[in-house]
Design a protein around this nucleic acid. Structure first.
Lengths: 243, 243
DNA sequence: ACGGTCGACTGATCCGCGGCAGGATTGCCG
DNA sequence: CGGCAATCCTGCCGCGGATCAGTCGACCGT
């Protein structure tokens, strides 16, 4: 594993061994680099004519607002993830996208994508794989909110983040940097911030995880997996599916 | 709008005016017709080498089971929807798929799809649109479970079903046939069956909707939309986006 | 040195919904 | 015809998590 690779290349490399031509196309996709400041939304609900991006650095979240002022965070995006792909296809954004940290991202036009697909189809396949893995995570998120209690749900969420970050070289079994506030955690997990605080305390006091000062320290990985009923199948993947 | 069209053609016709060549390709996709009985799962979690299908007749649901025996229904599929597309891309299914009624579906191979894309690209675009609309519904489902109370959540869900069924000619503003039991409704909405029962009673007693004997009768569409905070944008769509 | 803001944290109280237990209704099968 | 299995429906009780109402410390900008 080459540490100098872009996060996206690392992630796709899990699925497919990329050759030089394909790496070059990936590089090409990163041409139009942009920066965003934390807190100012990149995309608003209802906005049309929006570009898609590949996240290079920083964290963003996509969320929906309700009339009563509460919000539900649908997903977080980390380096290597696509941003707003659905907004492009659907022509109008159905959710907001907010950078949680300073963000660097590469703008991707519809035509860039189409060209990448036609000149390097294996790369296209790998991107579809990555996209369906992301969709699978939204589904897992749904299951968590619908059927898991606060403790399991939080544990599961932290493990999921850990798995995703590990794929792009920003986490290990021991832990990862995490810029989330307890409020954001609450909005993601469908709980109140007050209750998240209590749950984090319990996880800390039982010696499973400590989430403090922007760092998630996993003390007992296996017990945490057990508690969260976490499906390790995509963690234990043994090397690329396609050679 | 031609009533003899397949549900899929109706749905795609919302996005794109389909010409005869494209309709022919759609027809061709329906070659390998299969039947399934209610209750016997088509796809199991963890299963590999699975085909994708286009639903022609009947209802199915996709769900995940938890260790404690509870389940979360992720989505329902109705005529015109794709089935297990993600399982094909991902190579191994991450959820179960169960027919809730007798079902007719057409098996679709990866190669069929690729061919359809290359010979009739506009059709491919329309299918991507349809797929991202479906994904948007999973997202809306997530928001509902995370941030809406039981009443709003149920109301929203019924409206969503209504919107989808109307697109394929199986529902109107007045109501639609619905083979769901209260147990399934509960598993979809992350509630208990007992509580669903109470919620349905309340919706009935306030004169908004009646769900009995397999039929959902919407008595006051506008009030229901108001209660559920339902986003009508994709209902009010004024004709195809692409000509 | 000063409010002002934002995030972490806590205790007390309240309520939406789950769990349990049981009755009524319907449809199916022998 | 009776028996059985779903499914619907209801009342009661308790719990998990929301809400309210704070305190405390860190980090602003002035």
């Amino acid at each position: 594993m080459v540490s100098a690779q872009s996060p996206l290349a690392m992630k796709l490399g899990i699925f497919v061994v990329l050759n030089n031509a394909e790496l070059a196309v990936l590089d090409e996709l990163h041409r139009r680099r942009r920066k965003f400041v934390a807190g100012r939304d990149i995309v608003h609900q209802g906005q049309t004519k929006q570009a898609a991006y590949i996240l290079a650095e920083g964290w963003v979240c996509s969320y929906k607002l309700l009339r009563d002022g509460s919000r539900q965070i649908i997903d977080f995006q980390i380096p290597g993830d696509f941003l707003g792909l659905r907004s492009v296809l659907f022509r109008t954004a159905d959710h907001n996208i907010e950078p949680m940290t300073p963000v660097e991202a590469s703008e991707v036009l519809e035509s860039d994508l189409l060209q990448a697909f036609s000149t390097t189809p294996r790369l296209g396949t790998a991107m579809l794989w990555a996209a369906s893995r992301d969709e699978a995570m939204v589904v897992e998120h749904l299951v968590g909110i619908g059927r898991r209690n606060a403790l399991e749900r939080t544990a599961h969420f932290l493990l999921e983040l850990n798995a995703r970050l590990t794929l792009v070289g920003r986490g290990t079994r021991a832990g990862f940097d995490c810029p989330l506030s307890q409020y954001m955690l609450a909005d993601a997990l469908g709980l109140s911030a007050v209750h998240i605080n209590r749950v984090l305390r319990e996880l800390r006091e039982t010696g499973l995880v400590t989430f403090q000062k922007g760092y998630v320290a996993i003390h007992d990985f296996d017990k945490l997996v057990e508690l969260a009923e976490f499906d390790r199948s995509y963690l234990d993947q043994e090397g690329p599916l396609l050679r």
